[in-house]
Design a protein around this nucleic acid. Sequence first.
DNA 1: CTACCTATATACCGATCGGTATGGAAACGA
DNA 2: TCGTTTCCATACCGATCGGTATATAGGTAG
Lengths: 199, 199
Amino acid sequence: MTQSGRGRPREFDPDQALSAALQVFWRRGYEGASLAELTEAMGITKPSLYACFGNKESLFRKALDLYERDKLCYVRSALDAPTSREVAERLLRGSLAIQTNSTDPKGCMGVISSVGGTAHSECIRDEIFARRASSDRALIERFERARAEGDLPDHIEPQAIACYLSTVMQGMAVQAGAGVPVERLEALIDTTLAMWPGR
Amino acid sequence: MTQSGRGRPREFDPDQALSAALQVFWRRGYEGASLAELTEAMGITKPSLYACFGNKESLFRKALDLYERDKLCYVRSALDAPTSREVAERLLRGSLAIQTNSTDPKGCMGVISSVGGTAHSECIRDEIFARRASSDRALIERFERARAEGDLPDHIEPQAIACYLSTVMQGMAVQAGAGVPVERLEALIDTTLAMWPGR
DNA sequence: CTACCTATATACCGATCGGTATGGAAACGA
DNA sequence: TCGTTTCCATACCGATCGGTATATAGGTAG
C-alpha cells in the first residue's frame, strides 16, 4: 500500500481487487473464504495481496469498511425518515435490496461472518458485534426521539422495538441467504409493517 | 456401529459421544468443527469415530437428528396449542429456552451450520434447508387451520405470518449467538406477541 | 544508460484439514 | 487355552490452510 512513485507501479486496481474480495467474504464468511479463492477472484497473487492489504484479517476489515460504505449507506438515510414506521420501512426494504441483489451474494455479510466458526476468528466476531452495537445504539436513539415526537405509543420501549426490528432484519438475512425468493421477503416486510405499533 | 456380540466390546458410550459431538457442531457449525476438537470432546480417537459413526458428514447428520429429537421437540407440542397466538408464544419461548441454555451453546445449530462456509458443505446446507422447509410447511398448515377457526383475521395470509414468525425466530437465534442477554430476548418475545394479529 | 526500487511469479514453509493403514490389546465363543 | 473378532492407539496419508522467501521483471529518478 506504499505507492511512493518510485519503482514499478502495481498492475491492478486496489479498489477493484478489494471489491472482488468483498464478494468472496460476503458469500463465504471470514473463515470460509480461502486465500486461494480470494486471490483468484481478485486477479492477483498472494504476495501482491499481502503487500497491498496486509494479511487476511486486515483485508477482511477493509472489505467490511467497503461493505458499510457502499452497501449499508441506506441506514443513515433510513434514520432520517420522518416517522418511526418509515424508518422501519426504509431499513427493511433497504436491507432486502442489498440482500437479494442479483449481482451480490445473498444475505448479510455481518451475519455470515459472525456465526459459527472456530476459535481463531473471535476477534473478527467481536469486530462485527461492536459495529452492530453501534448501529443498534443509533436505532434506539432514533426510536427514543420517535416516542418523544409521538410516533410511538408510550408503552413501547425504544430499546425493545429497536431490538425487535434488528431481529427481523437479521432473520430476513438468514432467509435470504437460504434462498427464500424476494417476493416472500417482500410479503414478510408488508406483514411486519402492518403490525407496526405507531406512525 | 456393528456390535455383533463377538469380539472386543467398545469402551465408550455412542450416545454420550454423539451428545458431545452435538455440542461441538452446535458451537462451531459443520465446517468450523474440526475432527481434532470433535474427538477430544467425545473422548475417543479418530479410528473409533469412523468405525462407529462413518465420516464427519454422517456424524453431523446423526447429531442433527439428536438435536431435533432432544432440542426441537417443543415444536410438536407448540403446534398443538389451541390458538395461533399460543402457537407463536410456545415456539418463541421454546426456541429461546434452548438457545440460551447455560449448558448448551448459544444460538440455533441449524442457522450456525447453514450460513456461510465453503462449497464443500453444500449438501449439509441443503439438508438443513430441507428440514427447515418441512418445519415451515407444518407451521403454514397450522396457521391455515387457525384462520379457518377464526384465530387469525382473514386478511392475514398463513404463509406470510408463518414466514414472519420463523424469521423472528431465526433473528433471535442470531442475537442469542451474538451474546444478547436472555432478558432482552424475553422482551423481544413480549414485543412480538404484543403485536400478534389474532388470538 | 544506469542505479535503484517495487511488483510479480514461483516455489516453498509449518500447521492443520479430513481420512486411513497398521499393529498390538482385549474380550468373545469354543 | 485357543483362535477369532473387534477395538484402540499411533503414525501416517495427500490436500489445503494462511503466510513468506527468493528471484526476476518492470518501472522511475538521476
